[in-house]
Design a protein around this nucleic acid. Structure first.
Lengths: 285, 285
DNA sequence: TTCCTACCTGCCACTAGTTATAGGTTTTGA
DNA sequence: TCAAAACCTATAACTAGTGGCAGGTAGGAA
């Protein structure tokens, strides 16, 4: 696994103690399925050496498929050391869709740490107050976690967590301060690589470019407005709104509005629609 | 700007030469609008000291709004040193939506570098062969770039680029190998922080959890299938499909299918639908 | 001059949304 | 363990909304 490139003067060769990274000076590259297992082993060793952390990985929080090596072995048991009798927290039916940590990964793109009492992000995030931690202990299989959400292209969200192997460590604020950056770096590299070699890339229309008007109409559609409503908002006719949305659909090679909105969202055309000028704040219930 | 936390033994204090990072051992924190300008200045200085790079930032590639400081001054001119007569490449009408580099940011989550001849990512990405570079020089305002895409929650995509200030440097492969990680780290921290303090957070239904069936039906809808088609695919009635989609909409507090798909995509429920078991590969045109 | 973007009109078939109800199965929590 | 909650499945009819198709004009940029 030693890289053939020249040594890097700016990289991770600063790591103390005693350079515990067994995979060189930067995140390990996963270029093929065969690279997965060695990369996972290196990641496991790094986390354990750094602070006796056990690693758990979800390449896609929307999927219950486990991360596996080239032979299909689940890395949770075969590399990361999760006991078979204690399933990964995202392997349980519905837990994949209900664990509070998963919710945080939807809302946050930076590392955070959590235990049964609270979720700690780098900066306050009011959305997190909505998250119900009352069933934390049943939802997860460690007492505390540092989690790195990884937002990938096409709306995919991955996550990697680091939790103490030994029992009783619930306060990770010091480890978070010391290690969040490095854990983020290596976790991102792993998930990026894993996702790249295992995913079929969604097919995207060739070199499409949506016009300003098309995007504008599509944004309102994505917010649930009907053609008539959009027409009123923009001071245009209903037919014109349809025209623009149809154009956008054609460019994105989508057959209907749902697919058009889906693809446009995946490509970041509609992201953070709160940024639309004169958009009213979203109503609160 | 010095941090009050204890020094970090594992961090970025390894940087050579001569620790050019003027803002301490890790990415600068942006906790309020007032932090933006100092963070931008530090970022500018880091990039210039590292390899005489000029910084350009887009917090949201879907928006033509420039990144600004607390007083509303555009950072491109006031901090990053872009000449006013030479607008940022994402400020020109339509260029924000057509620049080839923007396209790459939609498809990639890792740093890449580019010039008029080619786009160089860490690993081959077949989608990039579709990108037309024939108008590169008119589309952008530097000869070469290292770009860091930043995929944020809710489908927002940001980008930060580093381009040589002096003319004539078109091959950035060495700089990329040396510095991509550190440029990524600091770029991410800046965009994450900027986005956090300047964006209105989208309102998201409280603690919603979609059931397996709801997600499944929604995925097919997002792929453009009608209710009848989904019913056939799943071997269920059309009414059941509608019921599930309606339930999902209720949970997400969406008024129609477009909004439902939009929100579900933003939250990562539909990400990488190629991962759906038994999904046929997307057709190629 | 040509092409692209933007805008407009009308009609109709098809699809999605609504509303209410019923029953069976699985999961969750005490 | 058991009851409650959640999930899953299905029905019917009607209305609102979308998509397809056809036709057109105007202005700006290359």
């Amino acid at each position: 696994m030693e890289r053939t490139r020249e040594p890097v003067s700016a990289g991770t060769d600063h790591i103390s103690p005693a350079d515990p990274l067994p995979f060189g000076r930067r995140g390990i590259d996963i270029s093929s399925l065969q690279d997965i297992r060695p990369a996972a082993e290196a990641l496991r060793d790094m986390a354990r050496d750094l602070s006796n952390f056990r690693v758990a990985v979800s390449a896609n929080i929307a999927s219950k498929l486990p991360v596996t090596d080239a032979q299909g072995n689940a890395l949770a048991q075969s590399v990361f050391g999760w006991p078979s009798s204690k399933d990964q927290w995202w392997k349980k039916p519905l837990l994949a869709l209900s664990s509070p940590l998963i919710f945080v990964c939807r809302y946050e793109s930076e590392p955070f740490w959590a235990n049964a009492r609270a979720i700690h992000t780098r900066a306050p995030n009011p959305l997190l107050s909505q998250i119900d931690l009352s069933h934390f202990r049943e939802s997860v299989n460690a007492e505390s976690f540092i989690v790195v959400p990884v937002h990938l292209p096409f709306g995919q969200i991955g996550a990697i967590s680091y939790s103490p192997i030994e029992p009783g460590r619930e306060d990770l604020s010091r480890e978070f301060a010391l290690y969040a950056d490095i854990l983020e770096y290596h976790g991102r590299r792993f998930i990026n690589g894993y996702s790249r070699v295992t995913s079929q890339r969604p097919w995207i229309a060739r070199n499409c470019r949506l016009s300003k008007r098309e995007v504008e109409c599509l944004r309102w559609a994505a917010l649930g407005k009907t053609d008539a409503e959009i027409a009123t908002i923009l001071g245009r006719s209903c037919a014109t709104v349809r025209f623009h949305i149809h154009n956008a659909a054609t460019k994105l090679e989508a057959v209907n509005r749902s697919q058009t909105v889906f693809k446009a969202t995946q490509l970041g055309y509609l992201g953070s629609v709160a940024a639309i000028s004169s958009t009213p704040a979203q109503p609160h219930g």
